[in-house]
Simulated assay, not measured.
Amino acid sequence: MRDNMTDSFEWMVKEHGKAIFNYIFSLVRQKELSEDLYQEVLVSAYLAFHTIKEPARLRSWLFTIARNKCKDYWRKENKTKQFWKEEVYSYSATVEAPPLPEEEFLHKDSVRKMAESVKTLPEIYQSAIFLYYFKDLTLLEISTKSNIPISTVKTRMKRGKEHLRPKLQAFAQ
């Protein structure tokens, strides 16, 4: 047995669904992503549908939900991109010729100094940085090994890098 709210919601989707999808697509320009965001909009709209007081504002209400879902996506995407762009240090190694003995010594010395700097960090940051940069574990592997959520690993990496940055800049000078 169907209730009036379900019928009203279905009518709303039939009436405004295509316009909402086209609006989302115009913002993100990716079909699959638009479909995902459209589904999120419909779920949010359905869950809050009973709260709408003015049916005349239904269309603008749906567009607001769609715009906010897109903003949430972009905000999340920008945080992810910014996190991955951060670097604690960078260097370039030549593949063509083997390193000179003095270069190898300097490299080992800088790695040793970096390891010493990492050891000065608080333990919660130290382990994430050490596992990532010295043991070449992925964030997911660190999360699994440490039995903590991946978001916590990312936060600890970010904060550990913030603590390390001034110390490592001293090496570059």
Rank of each mutant, 00 (worst) to 15 (best):
L100V: 12
I52V: 15
K76I: 03
V118H: 03
P99Y: 08
K145G: 01
W61A: 10
Q39S: 13
L106D: 08
R75T: 13
S90F: 11
E141N: 06
S90Y: 07
L100K: 15
V41G: 00
S127W: 06
T51Y: 01
R75W: 01
A115M: 12
T94H: 05
K53L: 11
Q126R: 15
S92D: 05
E77P: 00
S143W: 01
A93L: 15
T120K: 09
T51G: 00
L62Q: 02
T138F: 07
V43D: 06
Y73Q: 04
L140F: 08
Q82D: 12
L137S: 03
H107S: 08
Q82M: 09
E141F: 03
Y91Q: 07
L121T: 02
Y89K: 02
Y125P: 03
A115D: 07
K85Q: 15
R67A: 13
E86G: 05
V88H: 02
S146Y: 01
F130W: 13
T64I: 10
E103W: 07
S60V: 15
A128E: 06
K69Y: 02
E103H: 09
E116K: 09
K145C: 10
P122R: 03
A45P: 05
L37Q: 00
I142D: 06
S92M: 10
K71F: 08
C70V: 15
A128H: 01
F49H: 02
P98L: 10
V41L: 03
T94E: 14
P98H: 11
E86V: 10
R59E: 13
E141Y: 04
S92A: 08
T138S: 15
H107K: 13
V41Y: 00
L140Y: 09
S60N: 06
A48I: 00
K79N: 09
F83V: 02
P101D: 10
E116R: 08
F130S: 11
K85Y: 03
C70R: 02
T51C: 00
I65T: 06
A128Q: 07
L37S: 03
E104G: 10
K119S: 12
L58P: 00
F63Y: 15
H50G: 12
K69D: 03
E123I: 09
L121M: 02
S44C: 01
K79W: 04
I142P: 04
Y46E: 03
Y132Q: 05
K108Q: 14
Y133P: 03
Y89S: 07
P99H: 08
E77F: 12
F134D: 01
V41E: 00
F83A: 07
I142T: 04
I124M: 07
K71A: 13
M114R: 10
F49M: 02
F49K: 04
A128D: 05
Y132F: 14
P99S: 09
Q126I: 04
L100S: 11
A93F: 12
R57W: 02
L139T: 02
H50A: 12
K81L: 15
M114E: 04
R67N: 06
P55E: 11
I142L: 05
E40S: 13
V43R: 11
K119D: 08
M114A: 09
